[in-house]
Amino acid sequence: MPADAPGIAMLGDSLTAGLGLDTPDTYPSLIEGRLRAEGIARGVLNAGVSGDTSAGGLRRLPWVMETHPTILLVALGGNDALRGLPVADLRRNLAAIIEGGQQGGALVILAGMEAPPNNGPEYTSAFREVYRDLAREYDVPLIPFLLDGVAGDPALNQVDGIHPNPEGARRVADVVWRALTPHLSRLRSSS
């Protein structure tokens, strides 16, 4: 493993890239700050690309895995839902990403997304199932909903109603941090 390998690589979309936010306000940067506060001098690689779908994330995975991250956070699917892409494709893509991450030696953490209700009950429930099924199937830690407590609250989102504002991003960081805490030892041990 290279000396400068990141502690966590976050493979995501605009929510991870921090669209509309200054870099220090994005949740990957906030997590990096919390790691430092915990005395863990490991970097966080922000591999978020605005507008990216699970299909795009899958193609980017090898590039990210070349950095040999200890933990791979997979936070994709929001754009699949917004564009109404087939749930079966989402499942296939995420499964391939989890497998790829695990084969690369990383601990994969899956961040769940919700499809908005207007997509229809069939779609939203099938969409939700994908994350639960995959977490069970591959035995990976699951964040049930990345935007838990943030989505739909005007006080925590930018005017577009989709992307968290700085306060919202802090809440997202809280959610992610809760999921990370049980695995901090991995970061310590390999640093």
Partner: peptide
């Protein structure tokens, strides 16, 4: 456009759950 247009009646839409908390409408 995200897709082709479909028109329905308001009354019928209200019988679905498409418009609820978190919907983008």
């Amino acid at each position: 456009s995200l897709g082709p247009r479909v028109f329905v009646s308001m009354a019928d839409l209200e019988q679905t759950t498409l418009v609820s908390f978190g919907s983008r409408a």
